[in-house]
């Protein structure tokens, strides 16, 4: 790695100050950023390493109807948390599908979301659960829905000098969700395509589908599901939503599949996920 200055603040305030003073970029677990630095895609002159904030900002708390997770909490801590397994099983399941245990032991949820890679597994699930990102900056704190937080290809709503402080995920026993990850290469690879489908238990509710890896953001919502399911849900209509997913996505061809293949898989996995959450048609997983 090329040399860089590295600062080790112990609080968000100190970190924000250092980022400003040295035009430094933040790094949390570092499993993604270190790779970019090694490959010289990212050549920082100064880095603010947030690792020491772990002491105060690695936590999972039960709040009023939601679970708050500190930005420095590692993915493995979340995945193995009894609270998360009980109240947000789809989150625990999704995280267990990310990379390998030795990466999840280090990678943090704050770093994961701030990275905003279009292939990230978590954002479609957090979108389905309507999670909020709490942001801290020089001017104070603010909050943003995950769907507005991630804005494009590696782009978030974070302004210069802002950091993610925590993530709040509503808990609802009435909402059922599933995340299906299709890997084209190895078990711990990024998804070829990942589909999250969610649906409320209440009668007449319409499922929502979010897909990663097939657009410029990890949260591509399939539009037009309401019209298709307006008179009820049948497996023929689910197939139609699958076609819609194939049409609406805009993947790039790479080692995980051609554009044609990824479109096909986006449709197929949408059908599989919808059959699970709606209970309509035979299970395909």
């Amino acid at each position: 790695m090329l040399p860089f200055k590295l600062f080790l603040p112990e609080s968000f305030e100190e970190a924000i100050q250092l980022m400003k003073e040295h035009s430094a970029k933040p790094i949390s677990g570092g499993t993604a950023v270190t790779t970019l630095i090694k490959e010289r895609i990212f050549q920082p002159t100064a880095i603010v390493n947030l690792r020491k904030l772990e002491r105060d900002h690695s936590y999972i708390r039960e709040m009023d109807g939601e679970i708050q997770i500190g930005a420095l909490t590692t993915l493995r801590t979340i995945e193995t948390s009894e609270i998360v397994k009980r109240d947000l099983p789809v989150v625990a399941d999704c995280i267990s599908k990310i990379a390998s245990i030795r990466i999840r032991n280090v990678a943090t949820i704050g770093g994961n979301l701030a990275h905003a890679d279009p292939d990230l597994d978590l954002p479609p699930v957090l979108a389905g659960l309507d999670a909020h990102i709490d942001i801290i900056g020089e001017e104070g704190e603010r909050s943003k829905n995950i769907k507005e937080f991630i804005q494009g290809y590696y782009e978030t709503d974070l302004k210069e000098g802002e950091l993610i402080k925590s993530i709040r995920i509503p808990v609802s026993s009435d909402r059922k969700g599933i995340y299906l990850k299709h890997r084209a290469l190895s078990e711990a690879d990024w998804p070829c395509v990942g589909v999250a489908a969610f649906m409320d238990n209440s009668p007449g509710s319409i499922p929502e589908v979010f897909i990663n890896s097939v657009a410029d953001t990890p949260i591509m919502r399939i539009e037009g599901i309401e019209e298709i399911f307006s008179d009820g849900i049948t497996s023929e209509l689910i197939d139609k939503v699958g076609e819609l997913a194939s049409e609406q996505c805009d993947p790039i061809g790479d080692s995980r599949g051609s554009v044609w293949y990824k479109r096909k898989m986006a449709g197929e996995f949408t059908i599989r996920a919808l059959r699970e959450v709606t209970g309509v048609g035979e299970s395909l997983i």
Partner: peptide, 23 residues
């Protein structure tokens, strides 16, 4: 060197970590 192969695995405080990605 990018955390995929597992050769460089060590334990830090009894947890498996890829030492090629850890500063």
């Amino acid at each position: 060197g990018v955390g995929v192969c597992g050769c460089c695995t060590v334990l830090i405080d009894n947890k498996v970590v890829a030492s090629c990605l850890e500063l």
